[in-house]
Structure formats: C-alpha cells, structure tokens
Design a protein around this nucleic acid. Sequence first.
DNA 1: TATTAATTGCAAACAATTCTTATTTAGGAA
DNA 2: TTCCTAAATAAGAATTGTTTGCAATTAATA
Lengths: 125, 125
Amino acid sequence: MKNTIQKTAIMNALMALDHPTADEVYECVHSEFPSISKATVYRILKRISEEGEILHLQIPGGADRFDTTLCVHHHLKCNKCGKVCDVSVPELDGIETRIKEESGFAIGGYRLVFSGLCSDCIFKK
Amino acid sequence: MKNTIQKTAIMNALMALDHPTADEVYECVHSEFPSISKATVYRILKRISEEGEILHLQIPGGADRFDTTLCVHHHLKCNKCGKVCDVSVPELDGIETRIKEESGFAIGGYRLVFSGLCSDCIFKK
DNA sequence: TATTAATTGCAAACAATTCTTATTTAGGAA
DNA sequence: TTCCTAAATAAGAATTGTTTGCAATTAATA
C-alpha cells in the first residue's frame, strides 16, 4: 500500500479521536487538510480495517465507528449521548467452539454491544 | 392502533419469512397486494417493533432485519449467503449486573452477533 | 351513519456509503 | 535524478436503506 499524506493524516486522526465515525474522521482531517475527499476517508478506513490495523465497529442505529484497540473487547453504547466505550467480557472466552459444535457455523468473530445510559446521562433529563 | 389490511398483510409476511429485511417484507406483501407502499412497510415494522410485537435487529453490514421470536436470544450471520439464524447464549445470563457495576452504565439490553460461514457455505467456493 | 383521528400512498428528503472518471502521485526503474 | 506506471486521489453522482411531509383515505367509536 502506498504511504500517502492522506493515510498518515487519517491514522493521526484515529489516534486523536475515541471510537470515531467515518464522518468524524473526515471532519478532523478536513480541518487540517481541506482538500481531502470523503470517499478517500471511507476507502482508507475500509482498507486499513481489512488489513487489521484498526477495528471496524458496526453500532446498531448509527454510523459505523473505528477503534484502534485491537485486543478482544466489546462495546457499551449510550443511547442518549451516543458515546461508545470499551468493555471486556471474559464470559464469552472460547464460546466460538460451543457455537460451532451446536450450529455448524464456522465462527469468524462476534460482536457484542450493550446499550443503555452512561453514568453521565442517567441523571440528565 | 388501527387494524388495517396493510398491518395484517405485514404480520402474515413476518410469519412466513425468516429474519426478513424490510425490503423482503415489502416484496412479499407487494406480490399479493401491489398497492402497498414501502413507507407503510417501514412505518408498520417500526411501530410494531417499538411496541414489542417483533424484534428489530441491526445486523452488521446490511439492512436491518425483523424477528418474531421474542425470548432472549442472539444471532449467527453467514458472511457468504447472508442467512441469519437464532442462537441462545446462556453464558451471558445476568451479565448486565456486572457490567453496570463496573461501568456505571444502566444497561437496557445487548445484542450479540456471531459472524462466519454457515454449514452450507463452508464447502462452497 | 357521521365524525375524527389514525393511517395510507406518494414523492421527496435523508444519511451513510460506494462508484465513476479524470487527474495526480508514490516509489521503483533507468 | 528523472521517468514511468500502477495505485491512489478529488469531486460529485449514484446507490442503498430509511424517514418524513402532506393530502387523501379509512377504521373505530359515538
């Protein structure tokens, strides 16, 4: 893969942001580098997530988000402010084996998203 | 809620189909009842899922799907043919409590989607 | 049966993402 | 260093999935 200015700017934005959407990455890069195109942001995010450099998260009811934490973990989503946090769920360790035996599916991975209200939003009206 | 012909037709389609997308429901109803509009399908599906009559599933990388099985369960998605199956994961029973204590989030629910290849697709090229 | 609020169909708006095409660029070869 | 070419880009049109505004229609009830 070519090492373009655009890719570098996107990697920097990913470091600076927490679970950003593609559009948030675009806004961040665009403020420094106004000529970048949205299609480029989507293309690069897609490519580097396919190559395993970042995780591509599909969050119910909203745009996809990207995550630079690569170890196995899952997510908490606040339904009010939209914030996404990491959470680890060791209860699921090794579950692929059981699911594969029961269902015949060859499990490539799984995603678990909890939704609710974060501690900041619980008391807000 | 009024009991319209459109709603009845959609409920029947939901019974006949397995984890359909809104568009699949529309196609099914439309073949019997050509005057129905897509907006009506989306509106009715949204309303009956909000009322708890069906589940509204947000499956990564594709259109939302609807599920008439109401007890707690999760999903397996085949990355090749797109099929979605139910699976139960008792390992997670009661996990909301632990997550709430650790994170402060008031958990309203959670969704777990396994992705991989179904037994039919494993051997296909 | 008349009333009325809920529901519908349609078209247009919408958001997120992908595609198309002409142009530019990174990185290796000469 | 300069040239070459495949890879990557910008811009915006196109797609996909879904929602909305509105005038017309209809189900439920009085």
